Amino acid sequence: MDLSALRVEEVQNVINAMQKILECPICLELIKEPVSTKCDHIFCKFCMLKLLNQKKGPSQCPLCKNDITKRSLQESTRFSQLVEELLKIICAFQLDTGLEYANSYNFAKKENNSPEHLKDEVSIIQSMGYRNRAKRLLQSEPENPSLQETSLSVQLSNLGTVRTLRTKQRIQPQKTSVYIELGSDSSEDTVNKATYCSVGDQELLQITPQGTRDEISLDSAKKAACEFSETDVTNTEHHQPSNNDLNTTEKRAAERHPEKYQGSSVSNLHVEPCGTNTHASSLQHENSSLLLTKDRMNVEKAEFCNKSKQPGLARSQHNRWAGSKETCNDRRTPSTEKKVDLNADPLCERKEWNKQKLPCSENPRDTEDVPWITLNSSIQKVNEWFSRSDELLGSDDSHDGESESNAKVADVLDVLNEVDEYSGSSEKIDLLASDPHEALICKSERVHSKSVESNIEDKIFGKTYRKKASLPNLSHVTENLIIGAFVTEPQIIQERPLTNKLKRKRRPTSGL
C-alpha cells in the first residue's frame, strides 16, 4: 500500500509539471487552440484576439514586449497534440486509482476541453461567416432531431417561395387574352364579311383624315369586289339584299356627314349593287376616265402658280386654248370622233363635250346612286353658264364675245376644280409618270385663266386698248415650251401688254 501511494504521488507531480508547461500565460489554463508568435511564445487563440482587439494597430507580447499583429500569429499543431495527450492521461489516472485529481477545478476545466467541445467553440470564435457556423452547429449536434426538422422546413419554405415567384413570372405573360375566330364554310359568310367591311370603312371615314380616306375606301372596294366574284351565280339572291343594306348604310352616312363622305364616293362606285361583274367593270372604266381629267386639272394648277410671274407667256397662250382643249377632250372620251376645226366657235365645242359626257352618266342604276348626284349638279351648273353665254354673245361685239367665252371657260374650270378634291395624291404621281406629254398640253388651259381676268378688268373701264407692237421672242419661247399647242394670231399678242400698262397708270386715278 505504501509503495502504491508513493507511485501515485509521483504520477500526480509529473502531471502537474506537464500542466504548468502547457498553461497559457494569460488565462493560466491549458492552452486552447495554441497560437505561436514571432517571438516563439505560445498563447491561446481566444486570449490573443481579445488582446489585439483592445487597441488599434499592433499590440505588445505580454512576455517579451514585442509587437504582435493578427497576421504574425501562427497555429502550432504540436502543442495541440500534447494537450490532447495530457487530458487522456489524466482521465486514465482517475480510472485506475479511483481518486480524484488534486486540482479539481483545473481538471474539471480540462475535462470540459474535450475535442468535441473544442470544435464547437472554434466554430463560434472564428469569423467564418453565418453559413459556415450553421453547418458546423448542425454537424456538432446530430442528436437534436427537432433542430434538423426546423432547419429543413425553413430551407424548403425558402425554396418554395423562390419557385413560386419564378412560376408566377412565367405564367403572367401567358394570361394575355387570345381571340380565335371559328369560321364556317357556308355561303352566307361572304355576304356577312362584305357588310362588315362596308360598315367598318364608314366608321374609318368618319375618323380618319382626308388623305387616308381614299386609300381605305379603295382597299375595301377591292375586297368586296373579290368576294362578289368568288361566289357562284346561284347565290345572287343572297347578294341582292346585302347590297341593298350597303346602299342604305352609305346613304345614311352621306346624310350625316356629306363633306366627309364625298371624298370616298368616287372610289367606292364599283361596290354599288350589281347584278353581274360586267356592270362593275364598266363603272370602273368610267371612274378611271374621270380621275384622269381631274388629275390633269391639278397639274394645271401647279403650272399656273409657276407661270404667274410671267405675264407675257400667259398672254401669248390665249389663242392656243381651243387647240389644246380639243386634244384633251379627244383623250378624255374613249369614243372615236373627228377633231373640230380651228376656226369653230369654242362654245360649240363645249356643248358637244357636254353631250358626250351626259350619255356616260345616263345609266338607270347610276342615277339612283348618291355619288353621281355631285356630277349631275356640276353638269347642270355648266349648262347654266353656257345659256348665259349665249345671251352675252348677242349683245357684245366679236372681240368682247371672245373674252366672255374665255371667262366662261374659266368658270367651267372652277367647277371642275371642285372635283379635284376627290382624287388622291398617289394617283397624281402615277398620271405624271405615265403621261407626261398630256400633262404639258393640259398646262396651257390653266395658264389661260390669267388672260381671262385681264379681259374682265378691261370691260370694267369700258374700253380695250391696242398697240401695234411685235414680240417675236415671246412667241418662239412659248412654242418651244408647249409641244401640242397651235400657232397664235400676232394681233392679239400685241394687244395684251398695252392693256396691263394702261391699267397700272389709271388705277390711282380711279381711286381718287
Rank of each mutant, 00 (worst) to 15 (best):
E9V: 14
R166C: 03
K65W: 15
C39F: 00
T212V: 06
E111G: 08
T69V: 07
S127M: 04
L152H: 06
I124H: 13
P173Q: 10
T190E: 06
I124Q: 13
L30E: 03
E116Q: 12
N66Q: 02
M18A: 02
I15C: 03
I26N: 09
C27W: 02
R7Q: 08
N16H: 14
F107A: 13
K65D: 13
C44R: 00
F43E: 00
K65M: 14
L30G: 14
T97H: 00
T77L: 09
E188G: 11
D67Y: 03
A224V: 05
T164V: 14
L165Y: 05
V178Y: 08
C39K: 00
S153Q: 11
N16P: 00
T77M: 04
V35S: 02
P145R: 03
D40C: 01
P142M: 02
L156R: 06
P145W: 06
K65T: 15
D185S: 10
Q139R: 12
P173F: 09
G129L: 05
V178C: 03
E111I: 13
Y130E: 10
N16E: 14
G98N: 00
E29Q: 08
L137K: 00
E85T: 15
D2H: 03
V178E: 11
K168T: 05
Q54A: 13
S140H: 03
P145F: 02
G129H: 03
T167F: 07
E33L: 11
I26V: 07
K45G: 08
R78C: 13
Q172G: 05
K168S: 06
N158V: 05
R136N: 15
G57V: 15
A108V: 10
Q169M: 02
L28P: 01
C44E: 00
D67V: 15
S140A: 08
Y130L: 04
E29P: 02
N132V: 02
E188V: 08
L52D: 02
N106M: 03
I26Y: 12
C47W: 01
S80W: 02
S146G: 09
S114L: 01
L118S: 09
M128W: 08
I15F: 10
E121P: 09
E75W: 15
S153F: 03
S186Q: 06
R170T: 09
S186M: 13
R133H: 13
E141Q: 08
L137Y: 04
S151E: 10
N53W: 04
P145V: 11
L49A: 01
E188N: 11
Q148W: 01
A302T: 00
E100S: 12
E29C: 12
H117Q: 01
Q172M: 14
E111C: 02
Q155F: 08
C44P: 00
N106V: 05
A92Y: 00
L99A: 08
E149L: 05
S151N: 05
E116N: 01
R166T: 07
E100R: 08
E188P: 12
E85S: 12
Q169F: 02
D67S: 14
L165I: 12
M48A: 12
S151K: 07
N132G: 09
V162D: 03
A17E: 09
S157H: 04
M128R: 04
I90A: 03
I124C: 15
E143Y: 09
E143C: 03
D2W: 10
F79D: 15
G183T: 08
E116T: 05
I171R: 09
F79S: 07
S220K: 10
L137M: 02
T161V: 05
V162G: 08
S151R: 10
P173L: 11
E188F: 07
E143T: 11
Q54W: 08
I42H: 02
E85K: 10
D67T: 00
S59M: 08
Q169L: 14
E116V: 06
I124N: 15
N53P: 04
T161D: 07
A102N: 14
T69I: 04
E75K: 15
S153M: 10
L52P: 15
S72F: 12
A92F: 01
A108P: 09
S80V: 05
M48V: 04
E121M: 12
D189V: 09
S157W: 13
F79Y: 12
V122Y: 07
V178F: 10
T77R: 12
N144L: 11
K20W: 08
L30T: 13
E116Y: 05
D189I: 15
S157M: 06
Y101T: 05
G98R: 04
R133P: 07
T276K: 06
Q139Y: 04
S184P: 07
F79P: 01
C39V: 00
I90N: 12
R131M: 13
P142N: 15
R7I: 13
K175S: 10
K55V: 08
K20Y: 14
L30R: 04
E143A: 08
T150C: 14
H117E: 10
E10A: 15
Q81G: 08
S72C: 14
E149N: 02
D120N: 04
Q60F: 00
K88F: 15
Q169H: 04
R136A: 06
I171K: 04
S146H: 09
E111W: 01
S153C: 03
V35R: 02
L30P: 07
Q60E: 15
L52G: 05
M128E: 02
S80P: 03
P142Q: 10
E188T: 12
N103E: 05
Q81S: 02
S157F: 09
H257V: 04
A5H: 01
L182A: 07
V8S: 15
L152M: 04
P58A: 06
V191W: 09
S177H: 04
Q94L: 04
Y179H: 14
R163H: 08
K20V: 11
A102R: 05
D120K: 14
H117R: 13
A134Q: 01
S177Q: 14
D67R: 04
V14E: 04
E111Y: 09
T97A: 02
R131V: 12
E188Y: 03
K32T: 02
L99G: 04
T97S: 02
A17V: 06
N16G: 08
Q174S: 12
V11L: 05
T97L: 05
P58R: 09
T176L: 13
D120Q: 10
L99F: 11
E149F: 11
E116I: 12
A92P: 00
R166S: 04
N144R: 12
G160I: 15
I31V: 10
E181D: 15
Q174C: 01
L22Q: 00
I90M: 15
A134C: 09
K88C: 08
L30I: 11
A17R: 11
I124L: 09
T69N: 15
P145M: 07
E33P: 02
L52A: 06
L3V: 13
K50E: 15
V122C: 01
N158I: 02
S151A: 03
R170P: 09
L138H: 13
T69R: 06
C64G: 00
P145H: 08
A17Y: 02
Q94N: 00
I125R: 09
S184G: 06
G160F: 08
Q139F: 03
R131H: 02
